[in-house]
Every structure is written in structure tokens, then in C-alpha cells.
Computed example of a mutant assay.
Amino acid sequence: MSTLSSICRQCYRSFASPAAPLAARQFSTSPVALARQVNKIPVLSKKALAAKAKKRALKARKNIYEHEKMTLTDAIAVLRAVEVAKPNSTYEIVVKTAMTRGSAVPKGRISLPREAKPKTEDRILVFAEGRQAEEAKRAGAHIVGGIDLADGIINGRHQATTILCTPALIRAITPKLGRILGPRGLMPSERRGTVTDDIAGYIRRLSGTTEWRGDKSGTIRMAIGKIHFPVDDVVRNVRQFVSSVKRVTGNQKDTESDQKSKSVKPVNAITRIVLSSSQAPSIQISDL
């Protein structure tokens, strides 16, 4: 019995009673399951993707100056200390505006006391006829013509960085080009001064200015100086640029243009002004 105790029960019964019939092996008749099931990746909607990106941004690590405000001179001192080994680094100013629905992209021109980088050449298109068209050509306009230029802009044949128009033609081109040039910030308007009878004078003023332009969210970025610039030069550049942005966005009254234009300027509130450099953190400015 000691040897039989090490045998399993089923074998022991077969050994103990050899006359008993052997048990038949039972086979499963269930369907064969797939070896691997591939789960489909759900396609997220735009709203879900935006919420996911917002959560990721909130979890991202912020720099130590994220919620701290400084005066302009203190911020410049911090950036100069961080960039002490790179005197050719560039200061960049970022102005964030609260873009309301249907408002135009902020855009303007400025002549800084000390330019941070070489100026780029503008390609100027002018809607004018007669004497004004001849004056525009002599002043240096690249493309000059009447209403027939609208079709060339629509099909992309005429490319320009600045578009001017005389008051006599603005009503004729607005129905054709309003939806095309408006979102790009190129539509001539009285508020911006690009609808004028003095086309030649406007073109001459362009040669000494630099264009700044915001994006669709209302964020304006511009190189405002070099680290090796004296502090006073950077301060003058920043204050003059912010003043230009405030006039265009309606946060600061410009008496001359307000008297010429009868329309009321819509106000795009400025929510934040940030100064940064190539390697240094972004610092919010409190006294602008």
C-alpha cells in the first residue's frame, strides 16, 4: 500500500479494479478563440483633443517667473544676467490681446529708436488711378492698378506685404477682397491709414518703419533689442512699441487719426506683456 499511495486516485482505481472500463477522454467542443484581439484606438474629437492639451499644459513644469511681475528695468537686469555669456542674444517682447470674435488681426508699423535687426523690404500693391497711380509708381510701388488687380489677388498672381487704396476705389474692392485680405490683415482701412489720397507720402513713410503683426489669437511678437544694447535704448524701444500696439488696439487714443476717422475704434484689451530672450525665462512686465 505504501507504493500505491503515491499513485493518483484515478490510476489507483484503475489499478485496484482492472475489470473497470477505462474512462474516455473528454474533448471540448467550444469554438476556438482568436489568438489576439486588436483594440481599435478611439478617434478623439477636436473638443476632446483641446481638453487633453489643456490638461497636459497645466501639468507641464512652469518657470520660476511664470506668475511673477517685474518692472521693465528689473526684467532687463535679470535677462542680462542670464545671457551674460551671449551678448548677441535678442530681447523679444510678447503682447497678448483679448481678441474678440470678428475683430481684425492687430497690425501696425513703427520706427524704433534703435533697430534690433535689419529691415525687410516691403512689396507694395496700390489700388489707384490717374495722377495718384503715377505718383505711386514714382514713389516706388511694385504693383499699381485699378479694380482689375482684385482678380490677380484672388487667384494668387499678385503677392504683396502692404496694400494701399485710394478712397475712390475702396468701396469697389471691399466686396471682392474683404473676406480674403481681412483675415490676413492686409485689407486697406481708414483706421490703419492704408486708405488715403496721399499714396506717395505713405510709401515714403514705409521706407523708415518696421511692420509688426499679430497672429489669429491676438499674440504679437517682436524682436526689440540686443543684450549688448544699453538699458536706456532697450527701455525706449519697448515703450515706443507698446505705445504703438495700444494705439492700434484702441487702448490708447490717437487724437490725429481719431479726428480724421468718424468710426469708433473697437478695443482689444491687452492682457499680458512679457519680455524674454533666447535662453532666459519669460518675465511679465508690470509697469507698461
Rank of each mutant, 00 (worst) to 15 (best):
E68M: 03
C11N: 13
V94Q: 08
Y65D: 05
I93F: 01
L125E: 06
D74I: 06
A150G: 08
V238T: 12
P18G: 05
A85V: 00
G225I: 04
H142T: 09
D197V: 02
G208M: 12
D122P: 07
R213V: 12
I170E: 15
A200S: 10
A139P: 07
E135S: 03
H228Q: 14
L206G: 15
G208L: 10
Q252R: 03
E135K: 06
I93Q: 00
E115V: 08
S263Q: 09
I124L: 06
R80F: 04
P230A: 02
Y91S: 03
Q252E: 10
A104M: 11
F27E: 08
K262P: 09
R36G: 01
P167V: 04
A19F: 10
N268W: 02
G152E: 03
R205G: 10
I170G: 14
I110P: 01
R247Y: 04
Q26M: 01
R204C: 07
S217P: 13
E92R: 05
E256F: 03
Q26A: 02
K246N: 02
K69P: 00
T194D: 12
T29N: 08
P167L: 13
K260I: 12
K86E: 07
A20P: 01
I173Y: 07
L58N: 03
G201K: 12
A280T: 07
A280L: 01
N237A: 01
V264H: 03
H228I: 09
R204T: 07
T210R: 14
T120H: 13
R272S: 06
G201M: 09
R13D: 09
V144C: 05
E256H: 06
Y65F: 12
V126K: 06
S6N: 11
P106Q: 04
I180V: 15
T29F: 05
A85E: 13
S261A: 11
V43H: 07
A223T: 06
L22H: 01
R205V: 08
D254Y: 00
R236I: 00
T219W: 04
R184K: 15
G108W: 02
C165I: 08
G146I: 00
L49C: 13
N237H: 00
G130I: 04
R80A: 14
A23T: 11
A168Q: 14
N63P: 07
E92P: 03
K176Y: 12
I180N: 10
V248W: 00
I7W: 13
S189G: 14
E134F: 01
E121K: 10
I173A: 09
N268G: 07
V274A: 00
A116R: 05
K119V: 14
Y12L: 14
T194V: 06
V95Q: 02
K137F: 08
D148S: 11
E66W: 13
S263G: 09
A104P: 07
D122Q: 04
L288W: 05
